[in-house]
Amino acid sequence: MKPKRKVWRGIVTALLLIWTFFPIYWMISLAIRGNEELTSALSFFPKSFTFEHFRMLFVKHHFEQALWNSFIVTAISLIIALIVGLACSYILVRVRFRFGLRKVSFFWILLVRVLPPIAFAMPLYFIFNYLQLSETRLPIIVAHLLINLPLIIWFTMTSIDSLAQGIEESAQIDGASEWQIYSHIILPQIYPSIAAVGMLSFMASWNEYLYAVIFIQKRDLFTLPLLLSTMNSEQELTQWGQIGAGGIISMIPVLIFVIFAQRYLIAGLSSGGVKE
């Protein structure tokens, strides 16, 4: 019985891996093929091997600059969003407000999340223009906050809400300050959620295109998705090699972040020994 079950598990896992990885394999295989191969029928396995596409990205498109820009924008907006978002969601869950602030905030946050970005993009553009900030990184950072803050607040509210309040109470009786309760009791318990929502926000920022394309007007500030998008246009042949290579490189930081966040997923689980 047992070995049979193991075999089935193995088969299912293998199928799932094929389903998951085939497109990614294809991206890699496009990135390492020579150009002659890319303009005709593509064989399952590459017949040529080259790093030329990767090299071209840096030589011709200044990919390193775009990487840096994406990193700055993503990191700053994520850090701000996490700090203010977590604080906000803790209070919204735990504190009783007189004027229904919780209800109003909750609905407003939801509304911001639901409104389509193409409706938001233009007014924000005009506002930043008016403030003469349109040539800086500020608009794009603010746009990312707009995308990620609702998600973070909303998502962590659910997690905090499901925590038992007894520990907080006894901590306070023991003389812990509110900040200590928040930072030493609440946050460690929801590490997995923070890691998960951090991951989602990081990816949303890293891949954000719609705002970036109209808020970023200086070549020096171009982010990765902006650069990658110019490699395909109707009147020219698509640069498959460079697209694949660009995709691979832009995945690496996300992957590093995910692996980093995973540690917190685990850390949260082992330190979560506060269960009743």
Binding site: T20, L30, M203, N207, I243
Partner: peptide, 19 residues
Amino acid sequence: LRTLFLFPMLCPPITITLI
């Protein structure tokens, strides 16, 4: 495995759609 199954979500959307 847990990380591997997350991969599709990590791909840059425009690029992977082109792929």
